[in-house]
Design a protein around this nucleic acid. Structure first.
Lengths: 194, 194
DNA sequence: ACCTGAACACCGTTCAAGT
DNA sequence: ACCTGAACACCGTTCAAGT
């Protein structure tokens, strides 16, 4: 008799996980407090107990989730290597949840996402980059734009497209552009590489 | 007595204009068929007469609107100049309506937007670029990403931010990155410049 | 042809109430 | 402390009806 599981208590983390799943599977427009409640086997109103800000706070949390990345680099790593790791990690995090890309690109970075950006900037500065803030801005733009066109290209969120399969050209194009970007950032930076 | 103006007939164009205004002023989440009807001094249900696909078609039309650009280039213009004009025009079109950026980046290009991309690709091919499709993809990614971080940076859609004033660094950073991108595209293209 | 009114199923959110 | 039920104001959309 598979009747009633022990009632796993609701939590902010479970809510966010379920919301990501729902947005990826059905799209952001179908992410609804009531449907989210159904997915969590709970009345929609229970969510507010763990998400004080309501739906707006939930969307903020989703944006932070797919936008908070960190890389640990070797002690004496070149800034180019750190930057490349960061861009790849950021791309992977966004591609993992295509349903919330619009939020990630649209909402200003807050909380953990803003902290990650600051940490990244500091890492690049310590690795010898003279203008790390500008570099991080350029890297964020590159990752956002690449992922957006890659997902458009795969037909994600396109009712016409047959299936959302991965884009083989996406990664190769990303790596080519990444090399060019890092070269350009090095040339623009007053100190040059270490 | 300023009572009743002659009833300007509703039209697809007027609907799109009003929707853009509403999205820019209040945000996409507040763009509502009923509010849109109010803005047009009409009942919401009248909109369906001119927008057969309902709200989904309206959002599609908004994405196309801010994403359909064309440039006319001189007969013998270098592909770099054509590309630069296109990127600047695309950036301007997106910045003009920050409220629908999320749609522009998220919806696959359709109709006039897809046609504009094809036309652009053809122009670049005629100007001597050997792999114009890859170049256009890279340019689209660049423009999307730049505009997204620029708007994040100005604090658009940030309830915390004081005012959405323009970003003085935005244009300069855009032009620097644009030069680097075009250089990179030239180096990657098998033919090189004309 | 073009717009309205009423209706339906659904939404976010509140608040008092249950356990 | 944590969740529910009922309620409220608001959605998108349909359909028959008005002019």
């Amino acid at each position: 008799m598979p009747a009633k599981r022990p009632p796993v208590p609701l939590s902010r983390e479970r809510i966010i996980d379920a919301a990501l799943h729902l947005a990826d599977a059905q799209g952001l427009r179908r992410l609804t407090m009531r449907r989210l409640g159904d997915a969590l086997e709970v009345e929609a109103m229970a969510i507010y107990h763990h998400m004080p800000g309501g739906k707006e706070a939930l969307l903020d949390a989703l944006a932070q989730h797919v936008t908070t990345v960190s890389v640990e680099a070797g002690e004496r790593a070149a800034w180019q290597d750190i930057a490349a790791l960061w861009c790849r990690a950021a791309r992977a995090a966004l591609l993992a949840h295509p349903g919330v890309l619009a939020l990630a690109m649209t909402k200003p970075p807050r909380g953990s996402a803003a902290a990650a950006i600051r940490e990244q900037t500091e890492q690049l500065r310590e690795a010898g980059l003279a203008a790390p803030a500008e570099a991080v801005r350029a890297m964020r733009a590159y990752v956002f734009g690449s992922v957006a066109v890659e997902l458009q290209h795969t037909g994600w969120a396109d009712p016409t497209a047959p299936e959302p399969g991965p884009d083989p050209d996406g990664e190769a194009a990303f790596e080519r552009g990444l090399s060019a970007l890092l070269t350009g950032l090095g040339a623009a930076d007053t100190t040059g590489a270490a």
